[in-house]
Simulated scan of single mutants.
Amino acid sequence: MPALTDNDDKTAVSARTIVLVVFDGVESIDVAGPASVFSKAELWRPGSYRLHVASPTGGAVATNGGLTLTDTLALPQLPDDIDTLIVAGGDEPGLRAAIAEQGLADWLVQAAPRVRRIASVCTGAFALAAAGLLDDRECTTHWRVCDLLQQMRPQARMRHDRVFVRDGPVWTSAGVTTGIELAIALVEDDLGHATAMEIARTLALPMLRSGAEPQLSEALRAQAGASHRLRELVAWIGLHPLENLSVEVLAERVQMSPRHFARAFVAETGCTPARYVERTRVSKAAQLLCQTRWTQEKIASSSGFRSVDALQRAFARQHGVTPQAYRDRERPASA
């Protein structure tokens, strides 16, 4: 396994060099999302970042969405002072060619010892795995290929269904848009929570998820088979966890009788309204446990629970642990 130093040095430095590694067939959002985050951070905190887009051979790179990235740097042309290296994901043929035929894995082996941290977006984790950078480390990737990566690299400790995972200097993220959340987490690690939140607001993100949350949200799962009317209600519940979310109130919002609404909700979402509301509130509490130092009393009241006891019982049902145990397990030690 290449030497990667577990060094979390937050000493103020001049502009950090960020490198996004791409290849023919790369997923456009895997590149544009993180690039936008770092550009917003540079606007908010000038002198923080210097961004390069690189590919194995340099020049123009065709994305899988039909866009072309021009004038990418060849990997050997990159400066020596790389702070953060992020490998994007994309279509399997292009990624395989980049890893094996174009020497990306070998280059990563050589680059790793001189880089402060290395990250991947989506299937970019396969490049890190090929270079041995995920051996004996926790990691994740797109939910569709978690098992495949685990089979190909048994030494990696796969965390299924996570937005992103940090293990020392190695960060991996799930599919596509989670690259934005990964990049914001990297910025927060460098520049603090206020800057991260400003970027999230600027990009109009609906929420800033912690890495511990599932790749597919409760809302998305519930909306998968729901009618338009209940899809809108599910979205509304997620934005209003502090409201009275009784069956009677929810039924009135969609102009149904309570009995008809309860039956329709189960049929279309796969769970009862009460269970879905509880899951939504637990998800909100989980975010706050990971992102704040608030007491359980404040977290309970801020996520719609009437008491700490109600919060703890709901956590035990969904996660099998107490809120404090969840915080201890999922919150980065440096947070």
Score class of each variant (00 low, 15 high):
2 P>G: 07
2 P>T: 13
7 N>V: 14
10 K>F: 09
14 S>E: 14
18 I>V: 15
19 V>W: 06
22 V>A: 09
22 V>D: 06
23 F>W: 04
31 V>E: 13
40 K>H: 12
40 K>A: 11
47 G>D: 05
63 T>N: 10
74 A>T: 08
75 L>R: 05
83 D>G: 05
84 T>I: 11
95 L>S: 02
101 E>I: 13
103 G>K: 05
105 A>F: 10
106 D>F: 09
109 V>D: 12
115 V>I: 15
117 R>A: 03
123 T>R: 10
128 L>H: 08
129 A>K: 06
135 D>G: 13
137 R>V: 12
144 R>H: 12
146 C>R: 05
148 L>V: 15
150 Q>I: 15
151 Q>S: 15
151 Q>C: 11
154 P>M: 08
159 R>P: 00
163 V>E: 04
164 F>N: 04
168 G>S: 02
169 P>T: 10
170 V>H: 02
173 S>D: 05
176 V>Q: 00
182 L>M: 08
182 L>V: 07
190 D>W: 01
192 G>L: 08
199 I>P: 01
207 M>D: 10
207 M>T: 13
211 G>F: 03
216 L>D: 11
219 A>L: 09
222 A>V: 07
231 R>V: 11
243 E>K: 00
245 L>M: 05
246 S>P: 10
246 S>A: 13
247 V>A: 12
254 V>E: 06
259 R>F: 14
259 R>P: 14
261 F>D: 00
267 A>M: 09
271 C>F: 10
280 T>H: 00
285 A>W: 00
290 C>T: 09
294 W>A: 03
297 E>Y: 00
303 S>E: 02
317 R>A: 07
320 G>R: 05
322 T>C: 00
330 E>M: 10
